[in-house]
């Protein structure tokens, strides 16, 4: 007898494609948030699958802090031109120049928190009623309670105590004027699933994820890239090390790990052996135990 079963990656893929198609069907003007990180790359790959042979029926939005790794931006631009996708860029620098946000000062200054303002402004400007993000529930405890379809009020806020129940695979995207949804198509994927899928599907990723030589310095146990965007203390001496990044975000808060994993198979081996979560090297999450929860309530990704 033939067995009708799917592997876990195929089942996750099918679920995510279902969610992406629901977004296209239920919303008038959706947008996909794209950071150039592996999660948004996988999400975009799934969107191409969902609407094939049609084009992805929504634009991508990148909130650019101005402090991105140049490799990320190059990768993004190449992917867009190869796939013909439409890209919109929201600029944190512009929000600063227009006086809408004030840049943090000091050694731990980061534009990470400022992104929320630029994001909400970009969503409002484009009149988007749904913004898809590559957030995963395994990433962080505040995300573990996030819905696939997450309702946001007219201020873009998340109210964790008043979420709509989400049953079976029936998604309720109904809303009032001015409200919008955040949708997380890869909610049920883990970091390991994402890497296995990238390998299985042979998906291109920025080379920042692979082991390379880079000038870095250590701060609070985290290796940070030596860049003009971070002010170093006197005792913080940069040196050349063999590193890779497990997540890709703003240069000012994304830590590297020492690694010799220079291909996907080795990364998967490393991820399965590692004992620290991928956000363990994100100093933005270390600000307090509930840092992510607070940022999410305000409308962060």
């Amino acid at each position: 007898m033939q067995s009708y079963s799917l592997t876990h990656l195929k089942e996750l893929e099918s679920e995510s494609i279902f969610v992406l198609r629901e977004v296209a069907a239920q919303f008038e003007n959706p947008v996909m948030l794209f950071s150039g990180g592996k999660d948004s790359i996988v999400m975009f790959h799934l969107a191409r699958k969902a609407f094939f042979p049609g084009k992805v029926p929504f634009p991508l939005l990148h909130v650019d802090t101005g402090h991105n790794f140049p490799e990320t931006i190059d990768f993004r631009d190449k992917l867009m031109s190869e796939t013909g996708a439409e890209l919109i860029v929201g600029s944190v620098q512009q929000s600063i120049d227009e006086g809408k946000v004030v840049e943090e000062k000091g050694f731990n200054a980061s534009r990470n928190a400022l992104q929320t303002v630029t994001l909400l402004e970009s969503l409002e400007k484009g009149k988007y009623d749904a913004a898809m993000g590559g957030g995963r529930r395994d990433e962080e405890k505040a995300r573990a309670k996030e819905r696939f379809f997450s309702h946001r009020d007219e201020f873009g806020q998340w109210d964790p105590k008043n979420q709509r129940p989400e049953l079976w695979n029936i998604f309720n995207g109904k809303k009032n004027m001015g409200e919008h949804f955040r949708v997380f198509p890869i909610s049920n994927w883990t970091e390991m699933d994402v890497w296995q899928y990238i390998l299985l599907e042979n998906i291109a990723i920025p080379n920042l994820y692979l082991s390379h030589e880079r000038m870095v310095f250590e701060r609070d146990g985290v290796l940070l890239a030596d860049t003009e965007y971070i002010e170093r203390r006197e005792n913080e001496i940069p040196e050349m090390r063999t590193v890779r990044f497990r997540t890709i975000g703003d240069m000012t808060c994304t830590g590297a790990v020492e690694s010799h994993a220079n291909d996907l198979e080795k990364i998967i081996e490393e991820v399965s052996a590692t004992r620290v979560t991928e956000r363990g090297a994100r100093s933005d999450d270390k600000r307090s135990e509930a840092a992510m929860e607070d940022r999410k309530k305000q409308g962060y990704f």
Binding site: R137, D138, K141, A142, A144, K145, P160, K161, Q163, S187, N188, T190, M192, E289, A290, E293
Partner: peptide, 20 residues
């Protein structure tokens, strides 16, 4: 999960966890 839950020592909502 959430800070308000830890403070009250209760769980408010369905949380999803993963392992393999």
């Amino acid at each position: 999960g959430l800070r308000s839950e830890r403070e009250q020592g209760i769980t408010i909502d369905v949380a999803y966890r993963y392992f393999a």
